[in-house]
Design a protein around this nucleic acid. Sequence first.
DNA 1: CGGTCGATGATT
DNA 2: ATCATCGACCGC
Length: 204
Amino acid sequence: MMLALPRSFYQRPATDVAPDLLGKLLVRQTELGLRIGRIVEVEAYLGREDLAAHSSKGVTPRTQVMFGEAGHAYVYLIYGMHHCMNVVTGPAGSGSAVLLRALEPVQGLALATNGPGRLTRAMEIDKQFYGADLCRPDSTLYLADDGPHPPAEILTSPRIGVDYAGAWAAAPLRYYLAESAWVSGRPAARSRARNRADKTFSKN
DNA sequence: CGGTCGATGATT
DNA sequence: ATCATCGACCGC
């Protein structure tokens, strides 16, 4: 199997880890086979002072993994139906993490992967991975390097869906690959996802 | 196209 | 009551 990224990769500020995650592989070993996607869009959540971060509420049953050791998964359910996956970053106690928002399909992916809810659905990631250690060699969920790539332009923007967070709503903490067609909210990816869904549903 | 809204359940 | 979302539906 591929080599999981070492814990030291995650033990840095979320603002360093987030752009470095772009181009990395998210690897998921399911019962049926390997599913792999290349990360093209992420968001950094900085910790207690960041009003958009769940950890700004302090340590709760839900957020405690954010305050734990870096390199673990923080998975939560949003709007009653979608899971979102973060990787915990920084020193323990910082409450910082990076949300994975979109993948470019590489292997074994049949469903759309643009958007945090679709990403977890396509990769079959749910709360069973809450707190999972992404650095264990036997993990069925981990991140890995994708070998050498040509240099890719990284853009930033405010984070999506955090308008409630006051001044933090405007912070440029969303990072994405400029040229990727798989970033969420992109017209090309949207119609592609739409066509795929239409095919799935017309199969009666 | 773009705006708007309902689903659905954990969290506070 | 709110929400780190998605997709359906509406009007143009």
